[in-house]
Design a protein around this nucleic acid. Structure first.
Length: 737
RNA sequence: GCGCCCUUAGCUCAGUUGGUAGAGCAGCUCAUUUACACUGAGAAGGUCGGGGGUUCGAGUCCCUCAGGGCGCACCA
């Protein structure tokens, strides 16, 4: 028996060495696996943001994906787990802007190219840091295939997709209302906004013969359309298109009556004026009736000249002054001081979103969403847990065209030319357009300075990370040839909107195949009381700290047990400490098994015999019990019920194998070795029990390996091997009953 | 407003097609030069949120109420 067993198991002295051994074996790379590994099994890692440290949610994701991969690898699949790093466009730019702010700098005063270079350096530094943390978690991913979301081939392929979609009529440039964050000075997609409850005064004003109401008087300068429901009997005397004069903020205005069903007759007075430039509903009404639209607020949140004496003021300052003026003119009817409503805010800075009409690139969603719905309804993609299927379908049935232009530098540039003279806009991948094809102007034609929404490229990630290349249609397409479609997409449940639908859409659009057959969604990792971790509450748990204290194995299994897909997990340090004890228990079990089956002076009394079947009566029952367990957990592994498997194995190993079977074995096997220098043959009962311990010990190590890879691999390395056994446990066969 | 999820032992959670309630942690009582104190043995602890229904039988299926969480929403 190896002397290492004389000391307690030390994860700190073991894990890094084991990881090196795995990496040097080459087995993370599917092409280097032994020949029994033929059928591909693929997971693409959701690339962690390369802008900071991993949090404990990442640790859960890595643990889950690694369990899936290690299990399948042991079963003989040709496993590929593609690691990645995300430049995370908008998110990283915000992290960097905060850093600039602390240094008293601002991106608005910087040359965009310098800013890009600085963020790139920052990201590359964090990328290395992030990768080291992924390794520390034991991830058996193929680093030789690692992809960064700004790698040149990723950028080139994203550009080609943009062009293809434009050619197919699925991408267009349009002046539509978008979500504008005036702090970050960029537009945002609908999933990048949140709604927040606000209490504001709600004003009622006289507008010609009507009383209208609003929470935003500062947008009302240009309002010249009065809208009411066509069925509203109160206003039946007014006809659609009829004109009338109304006294308004800066003098009389000619107003036009519009009848539209978007109006809620129950709300307010049932009459409103519209501001199409700064309100999505109003924009919709204006679109339907082809009405004029005028900008009132500029891109930094200040009033434009249309506001007359109020021009140049910020919204917050202007609002009370405008109300004051209307009151003085006798147009203020009443004010509800406490009007509760939800306003959209930027999901990062909580600045109120100012809708603006901007020329941007949009993806036409409906035809793409229809394909995704069909695919999911046909069962080509299944969700774990199943209720996310409903959420997915609801989302796909209610799509709006997707704005993919961002006014930030950190991202993939949009390869397009825009003509400021005639409005021409089209992709120009090679940069060959120098004069506008429509109006022939050379001076008005410029390159688009915007970048893509990160999700435009991330949505293609299963393809991009596998080297998909649409320009070589029909020929070799990198790893996509053998590994696409992938098998499982494991990610956080919050990405059910932001990411999953886009991957399904792009996969179907570009290849006709959904990018994965299973979506496994994990929940949030909360603190021990089930409260969300946040910096302000001070309850954030850093995975690296836990690894240092308890070892990666303890952290991994602590994150898995009691964690069902889709539901949040309460993580307590006690739990992880308990699993550190478990790793040590396994260590001592190994020591006992080796000691009690080996002879004195290093001779082996009982060598592991894989073909042994002459079980004693007592051991037959134990073999049957173990085989039942193996059959159960194999089924549960196939169903991705890792929480059940981990718990069952834990219970069997500790409370059956160690507490009962090992204790009983002491009496059967005698004090230590049966006979160092055998004078009589060991009894049949002794042989049977010794073989049972040796067999079951190996079964336990193999079955636990996906969950606690380090300690099981370390123990495996200390076992005397029999012919046919692999040097590394990671490529041993998964046990069979 | 619409939708989804949750409510089971002190705490955190399991409980597969309906068939006599489970685990981990904490707590309690003992034991202890043991493979292992990173330990063992034992006991205790729940009318499964309330009410109603279906059924021979409901933690599980249906209805309803209450509490908690989350998501979506263009009532100006």
């Amino acid at each position: 028996m190896n002397d290492k067993f004389l000391k307690p198991y030390s994860p700190q002295d073991t894990e890094a060495n084991i990881y090196t051994r795995w990496q040097e074996s080459g087995f993370f790379n599917p092409d280097k696996l032994p020949t029994r590994h033929q059928k591909p099994f693929t997971i693409v890692m959701p690339p962690p943001n390369a802008n900071g440290n991993l949090h404990v949610g990442h640790a859960l994701a890595i643990a889950l994906e690694d369990i899936m991969i290690r299990y399948k690898r042991m079963q003989g699949f040709k496993t590929l787990w593609v690691p990645g790093a995300d430049h995370a466009g908008f998110e990283t730019q915000i992290v960097y802007e905060k850093k600039l702010e602390k240094e008293g700098r601002s991106r608005f005063k910087m040359d965009p190219q310098d800013l890009y270079k600085e963020i790139l350096a920052f990201t590359l530094e964090n990328k290395g840091n992030m990768e080291a943390q992924v390794r520390a978690l034991g991830a058996s991913c193929d680093w030789s295939r690692e992809k960064f979301t700004l790698d040149p081939d990723v950028v080139a392929e994203t550009h080609r997709t943009f062009k293809k979609m434009y050619d197919d009529g699925l991408v267009y440039r349009g002046s539509r209302i978008v979500n504008w964050c005036s702090k970050h000075a960029t537009s945002l997609s609908d999933v990048e906004t949140e709604s927040k409850e606000k209490v504001d005064p709600f004003y009622y004003f006289k507008y010609g013969p009507f009383t209208i109401s609003t929470a935003r008087p500062e947008t009302k300068f240009g309002d010249k359309y009065v809208v009411m429901h066509p069925d509203d009997k109160r206003y039946a005397e007014y006809k659609h298109g009829q004109q009338l004069t109304a006294e308004w903020i800066n003098g009389p205005i000619t107003a036009t009556i519009i009848k539209d069903e978007a109006i809620d007759m129950e709300f307010g007075t049932g009459v409103m004026t519209i501001t199409p430039w700064h309100d999505a509903v109003d924009f919709g009404i204006a679109e339907r009736h082809k009405l004029d639209r005028e900008q009132v607020i500029d891109m930094r949140g200040k009033l434009l000249p249309i506001a007359g004496e109020f021009a140049g003021l910020k919204i917050a300052e202007a609002r009370p002054k405008i109300v004051e003026k209307l009151k003085a003119k006798g147009l203020l009817v009443k004010v509800d001081e406490k009007y509760v409503h939800n306003v959209p805010v930027c999901y990062k800075c909580e600045t109120a979103i100012e809708p603006q009409i901007l020329p941007q690139w949009f993806v036409k969603m409906q035809p793409l969403a229809e394909k995704a719905i069909k695919s999911v309804e046909a069962g080509e993609v299944v969700f774990q847990p199943d209720n996310y299927r409903k959420i997915f379908l609801y989302w796909m049935n209610n799509t709006l065209d997707w704005n993919i232009s961002r006014q930030i530098v950190w991202g993939i540039p949009i390869p397009a030319k825009i003509c400021d003279a005639c409005g021409f806009a089209a992709p120009d991948l090679e940069g060959t357009l120098t004069t506008c094809p429509t109006c022939k102007s050379a001076t008005a034609l410029r390159a688009d300075t915007d970048t893509f929404d990160t999700w435009f490229s991330s949505g293609q990630w299963p393809l991009l990370s596998l080297g998909y290349n649409s320009s070589k249609d029909g020929s070799a397409r990198g790893d996509c040839k053998s590994f696409y479609p992938t098998d499982i997409m494991e990610t956080g449940s919050d990405l059910i909107f932001k990411w999953i639908p886009r991957m399904v859409i792009f996969g179907l659009y570009l290849t006709g195949k959904a990018p994965f057959h299973t979506v496994y969604l994990h929940g949030l990792v909360n603190d021990a009381q089930g409260k969300k971790m946040s910096k302000s509450k001070g309850n954030v748990v850093n995975p690296t700290d836990l690894i240092v204290k308890y070892g990666t194995d303890a952290l991994r299994i602590g994150l898995i047990v009691g964690n069902t897909p889709g539901t949040n997990l309460a993580l307590s340090e006690d739990k992880i400490r308990g699993y550190k004890n478990f790793a040590n228990k396994l260590w001592n079990i190994s020591r006992f098994v080796l000691e009690s089956t080996s002879g004195a002076g290093g001779t082996t009394a009982f060598a592991y015999d894989p073909t042994f079947t002459a079980w004693s009566e007592a051991d037959k029952a134990l073999v049957a019990e173990r085989d039942t367990l193996v059959a159960e957990i194999t089924k549960e592994m196939d169903e991705n019920k890792f929480y059940l498997v981990a718990e069952k194995l834990y219970h069997y190993i500790w409370h059956r194998f160690a507490d009962i079977i090992l204790e009983d074995s002491k009496a059967i096997l005698g004090s230590a070795a049966p006979n160092a220098v055998p004078t009589v043959a060991p009894s049949a009962d002794k042989t049977s029990r010794a073989q049972f311990l040796l067999h079951t010990h190996r079964t336990i190590l193999k079955a636990m390996h996906p969950f606690i890879p380090f300690v099981t691999e370390e123990i495996w390395s200390l076992l005397p091997k029999t012919a046919g056994e692999q040097t590394l446990l990671m490529v041993e066969k998964w046990p069979t009953a």
